[in-house]
Design a protein around this nucleic acid. Structure first.
Lengths: 258, 258
DNA sequence: CGGGTGATTGATACCCATCAATAGTGGTGG
DNA sequence: CCACCACTATTGATGGGTATCAATCACCCG
């Protein structure tokens, strides 16, 4: 079970590089991350609210969601993660968690000990910066979700999810934005969107009937990306590292200067 | 205008200490933060989406909100900040922002240059840890908001906001949880809750009629805290540093060990 | 004292939830 | 390999929580 299965780590480092410059040495350090490899079937809880964890969860294959649970037992998914994501990176600095993690599909994950990550941060300020920044991007995505759940109608909300997920898939090198695998259930999407599965189903039908996007057999196919973006009022700026790329006074070991 | 007005900085450091142990030296460094003091009237934008900022905003007095703006112009408030909060701490690592900041009341703020903060982080891993952790607490609050906007009815949603804000006020040493100033408008609360101001007004009336809480003259008075918590299904664990206090293997300069 | 913003209330419409039932799909064991 | 069974997707009917449109009142600041 132990192993330095690099597939997932590779993707993670690749994503970090989209927002932060890292030296060869730092990249090598990050690629050296290891963890216990675990496989789980769909719809299983990996971490429960109230737990204290000492590892972070890196997705190698499949989908994982972070959720918050209401007293009634109803769940709201606050984030959906794809391969290459380090789901609960923030648990490194806040190991007592108020949320949980659940699988959305059959998954393969890597449990990376917090100690390893902390050691890297201690050894390299750039890595600390990159990881901190990664958690802020995670928060940006959540903020955007909040604004859509609070303000957008179901059609726009779901369209936005398809846009966002498509771009993330593409950036991760997993698929094309207009055609990507999505193995979660309609019920899970409902929990992410703040909608009932019934209404999800009807809205998906509306999107299909309009010829915009089809989601069948665990596969999303966008037939009219422009129209999807219009319906979603989509602007990818909020989670792209684009504007955080090499620029004076921000990147790399700037933390060490003043 | 320049000044080392410490009132706000004091509160900020005080809050950091609730979740992280910091040495006397680190505390002194943080207290040495300075910035340009600015005053603004209510309902004014401090930062607009798409801007690149080189300072962080520390609230000395008044309320500030972070918002996301839809294409229609409608705004969703993704966070509400009180005195002592460093609103956009995450902008230190991601200075190109996708959101904006607006005042909710007349405010006095301090604009603290990113450079100053980065220098502190470079000089002390503990400070880096404390600040990173602070942004994760911010994210926890947002996640909780998301789950309530997505899953809870208006009454519960608003009750939860009153609980959360009361506890935060109390922790900040600004007021009692059951009686605190809240100078924002009902419209602004609507933007935070994902509800129209009309519905906010009616729900407030319902809370008043039940004898649970009264919000008048910019002042919240909770008459029945237990009932309010029940209505809100409130559990403060998600943003308290409580469980992050001194504990082996987590705090202080642990970042520097392995 | 005037003007504008915020609060309050009423009437109506609509989006989405809920309840209920059937069809389809994939996984599992015999 | 097939049959079963649980889970998932789909559709209909109905109700409810909020939004929307509209108007009046209260209040604060200049």
């Amino acid at each position: 079970m132990e192993g330095r299965s690099s597939a997932g780590v590779d993707r993670f480092v690749h994503r970090l590089l989209q927002s932060t410059d890292l030296s060869e040495h730092d990249q090598a350090s990050l690629l050296g991350l290891t963890g216990r490899s675990v496989e789980q079937r769909a719809r299983t809880d990996l971490v429960l609210p109230g737990q204290t964890v000492d590892y972070a969860t890196l997705i190698v294959d499949g989908l994982v969601a972070r959720f918050d649970q209401m007293g009634s037992g109803a769940r709201q998914l606050t984030a959906v993660y794809i391969p290459g994501d380090l789901c609960d990176l923030h648990s490194v600095v806040a190991p007592h968690v108020g949320w949980g993690l659940q699988t959305l599909t059959k998954v393969k994950i890597l449990r990376v000990p917090h100690d390893q990550i902390r050691a890297l941060v201690a050894a390299s300020p750039s890595i600390g910066l990159a990881l901190w920044r990664d958690t802020t991007i995670d928060a940006s995505i959540m903020a955007k979700r909040l604004s859509y759940v609070g303000r957008a109608p179901a059609l726009s909300r779901i369209a936005h999810f398809f846009c966002e997920t498509g771009i993330r898939m593409e950036l991760a090198g997993l698929a094309d934005r207009a055609s990507y695998p999505l193995g979660m259930t309609q019920e899970a999407l409902g929990e992410a969107m703040g909608l009932t599965p019934i209404h999800i189903n009807r809205t998906l039908r509306a999107l299909r009937d309009r010829g915009v996007v089809t989601w069948r057999n665990r596969q999303v196919d966008v037939h009219d990306w422009d129209e999807l973006e219009t319906l979603a009022d989509f602007d990818p700026a909020y989670f792209l590292g684009t504007d955080l790329r090499p620029r004076d006074g921000i990147n790399g070991d700037l933390l060490v200067s003043s």
